[in-house]
Amino acid sequence: MKEIEEKHAFLMRWTHWVNFPVLAVMIWSGMFIYWANDAYGISIFGVTYIKFFPEWFYNYFHIPQRLAEGMAYHFLFMWFFFLNGLLYIIYTIFSGAWRELMPQKNSFKEAWLVLLHDLHIRKTIPPHKKYNAAQRIAYSAIILMGLGSVITGLAIYKPVQFYWLCWLCGGYHFARIIHFALTIGYVFFFLIHILQVALAGWNNFRSVVSGFEVIGNTEKDKDEKLTAHGTAEKKES
């Protein structure tokens, strides 16, 4: 029998889809800010020096000379990023949805099995509820990352008024490095997330828009459904 199974609550879906464009704008405007002093690079034994972003990258995305504009966008959309994230966290705590989200004792062990399964090395995946062990870790981590971006962002934005936050982040320089590294983290998360969603298929994707998944869609089920449909029609007439 085909059945509708509720999966994602309205607030979870809403905050997810609001976050996507808002975070995109934050990364885009953040690039304008980073460009003004692109200090990060990789030096190996003090010899090779690679800049984090090559010149063509900046030019391709029209990033140079837009610091003021970048700050103006960044300091507007930070509000949406923060409020949307806060709404999600409050909802997750009070609805009890955190029970299905937070990693459990065995999640870290099981996450490896999920990884092996996803890499087609292992055939089965440990039994799980809404999220598997790897998802629990990833989706909890991304929330912590968001919180980290807000905290390090504030530490960089007002290092004098929020001196204690700046101290907590290991100082102005380290706060900037974390803020930057988290952004790179979002980009990697996004790439893997998109790949996983594509592999998981339509039913899974739809559940983040409409909230439900359809289960039990076998041949036998189809027959049963037809009979059920027939009776429904009869009633109508």
Binding site: M1, K2, E3, I4, R206, V209, S210, G211, F212, V214, K225, A228, H229, A232, K235, E236
Partner: peptide
């Protein structure tokens, strides 16, 4: 008449999308 599963799915898809 109560909606069939198929109808429910269609309706909810239509609204949410």
């Amino acid at each position: 008449a109560p909606l069939s599963i198929e109808q429910k799915i269609k309706r909810r898809n239509f609204i949410s999308f």
